[in-house]
Amino acid sequence: MSTILSIHNLNKVYASGFQALKNINLKIRKGEIFALLGPNGAGKTTLINAICGIVNPSDGKIIVDGFDIINDFRATRSLIGLVPQELSTDAFETVWNTVNFSRGLFGKAPNPAFIEQTLKQLSLWDKKNNTIRTLSGGMKRRLMIAKALSHEPRVLFLDEPTAGVDVNLRKDMWEQVRHLKNTGVTIILTTHYLEEAEEMADRIGIINKGEIIVTENKTDLMKKLGRKQLILDLKDPLGEIPAPLTKWALAFNPEKTQLIYTYDSTKDDNGIAQLLADLSSAGMTFKDIHTNQSSLEEIFIQLVKP
């Protein structure tokens, strides 16, 4: 897959002296969904704003589809759509006018048919003549997406697109993002909902304190950094682990009704067969047995913990 966005040694130091981005190097592949994760203040929005031209980088180079964002800003910005974190809208403008304004601003000739199609896809068509102030929060969020899509961008930045959006609408938005991906749009999203990244992203980047600490395929990341656990529900709670089993580094749950064995799922010999045999020899009986894979959230917390 070819690269559509590449960032080389990007630094951003604000006038206050605060360094928001530290030597960022990142490549985004054409057509992928890339989730950029990080705690508050990690530098996600600064990075997006630097790519979009809203923040002046202090140092480094950003190339979008072969064009430099400074020297060829017209070419790069025409390719990019941005849905910012804040719901910044012109309250007294109509939905139709504001989306058409965005299209014009990005240098595209009016295309009412395309705007109609976009508004319909985002379930905003029946609100086209409404002023923005009359829309609900979820509708405003979709309107921001419609504005960003109005000039048919090839790269779309979604900065926390589902913040403050209810579960149903969030799932609708995920569908819309998948649809966009199917049309060939590259999507870079930031989110605080890690299940969102887990559900949608092809690749994940984690940024902390202005530095990219991990960039990995989602499945590889989960495999590499995720722990897998075998959980055995005991028939009767145990006081302590029987002596013949101490070599297995087993753990109890707080109620001591479960035995937990953490293993490396990438290894051929993960020890499960031998452990079960040892448990049987020790005369232990179980009600149930199941496995648990660490979530992205657990991996994330593990990576960014101070």
Partner: peptide
């Protein structure tokens, strides 16, 4: 003031 300036700043103009 409203924050919509982001659109002008990120546009190819």
């Amino acid at each position: 003031f409203t924050g919509t300036i982001y659109e002008v700043l990120s546009a190819p103009i």
